[in-house]
């Protein structure tokens, strides 16, 4: 049974464009210029009940727009959307009772009870969804234990750290036990330990409640954490829809190493791209420790960071490598789904 069915979905919007500097601002004051942005182009896919699906793509890929259309907040320009058997934009009560939309950037509690403790917000949520008192207590206990926030729910929200706030906001988002959970960059800004804990929580919630979970992320590394199935969006097009194992074959086996020197990088560095006082190199994972050993001998290094390669490179790689070509489609014509 389909939880979500999307066919040839398109959404575009106008974005204001302002020139740089004072003259740009002055010109913008008298004459507005707009640019048409195609946030989603001919996107089609379907998701079955109980699936946990990751949506990844760089910033501006259309991930958030897609979730907002699925939750009924935005109206599509064309195409059809069915979520749990409802047309989202009609925003019927039963539909709204069955879904949740959670973003790591801000939460319902922050908007409504900033100076009060989360329990006051949970009480409001209880009444919004008409959850009976005893059932509410049971659910609250379940979620509070799972997310380990017992000590936080009686502290004013504004006094909590970002990570703590994300967790208490998640309790608020899930108190009504939704069948469909739309999570928009839920781990943004969190430290690695908190991220891991949340991923574990999402998996557990998905298994225990048989809920459908859609999670967006713009980190390629999150592919490891996301469900079996992954959708890749890029510039509004659905580039990939399938098992993440298939995708992993197409991912670059490299890391981007950034080394910052006290002054300028030594001229002896070969094969590194130099940008001011920083040297950058994409290094194969198997060669990472050798490369770091070599470079760490230099005592003018003040910082080393190891990151995933830029998303654009990943997308390019997916296309240039042959392994995943049978699963890639350009959005207008869908191929086999795993």
């Amino acid at each position: 049974m389909y939880s979500i069915k999307v066919e040839k979905l398109c959404k575009s919007y106008r974005k204001e464009e302002k020139g740089q500097g004072r003259f740009g601002s002055l010109r913008f004051f008298f004459r507005r210029k707009y640019r048409e942005i195609h946030a989603l182009r001919d996107v089609s896919f379907s998701i079955e009940r109980g699936e946990m699906v990751g949506i990844i793509g760089p910033n501006g890929a259309g991930k958030t727009t897609l979730l907002k259309i699925l939750s009924g907040v935005l109206y599509p320009d064309s195409g059809s959307v069915s979520v749990l058997g409802y047309i989202p934009t009609r925003r019927e009560k039963e539909f709204l009772r069955s879904i949740t939309y959670f973003t790591g950037q801000r939460g319902f509690l922050s908007l409504t009870i900033w100076d009060l403790p989360p329990v006051d917000g949970y009480e409001l949520i209880r009444h919004i969804y008409g959850i009976p008192e005893s059932e509410y207590r049971r659910r609250l206990k379940y979620l509070v234990e799972l997310l380990d926030v017992e000590d936080l729910i009686r502290t004013p929200l504004r006094k909590l750290s970002l990570g703590e706030r994300t967790k208490v906001e998640l309790v608020a988002a899930l108190l009504h036990f939704p069948d469909l959970v739309l999570l928009d960059e839920p781990t943004i800004g969190l430290d690695i330990v908190s991220q891991k804990r949340l991923w574990e929580f999402f998996r557990l919630y998905n298994e225990e409640r048989r809920a459908t979970l859609l999670i967006t992320s713009h980190y390629t590394r999150d592919i490891e954490e996301l469900g079996k199935r992954v959708l890749i969006l890029h510039r509004g097009r659905l580039l990939f829809d399938g098992d993440k194992k298939g995708l992993a074959k197409g991912l670059p086996d490299r890391k981007l190493v950034k080394v910052v020197f006290r002054s300028s990088p030594p001229p002896s560095l070969r094969g590194w791209r130099i940008e001011g006082d920083t040297a950058l190199k994409q290094v194969k994972k198997s060669r990472l420790s050798d490369e770091l050993r070599l470079i760490s001998l230099d005592d003018s290094i003040i910082d080393i960071t190891i990151e995933d390669p830029p998303f654009e490179d990943v997308i390019r790689e997916i296309f240039t490598r042959g392994e995943v070509n049978d699963e890639v489609f350009d959005g207008s014509e869908k191929r086999d789904q795993t």
């Binding site: 939750s71 009924g72 907040v73 709204l96 009772r97 973003t103 319902f108 908007l111 919004i128 969804y129």
Partner: peptide, 16 residues
């Protein structure tokens, strides 16, 4: 401000 900044979204996804 909630309409401008997108805070309205968190109301629209609830029966509220």
């Amino acid at each position: 401000w909630n309409i401008k900044s997108g805070g309205l979204t968190l109301f629209l996804v609830r029966p509220f």
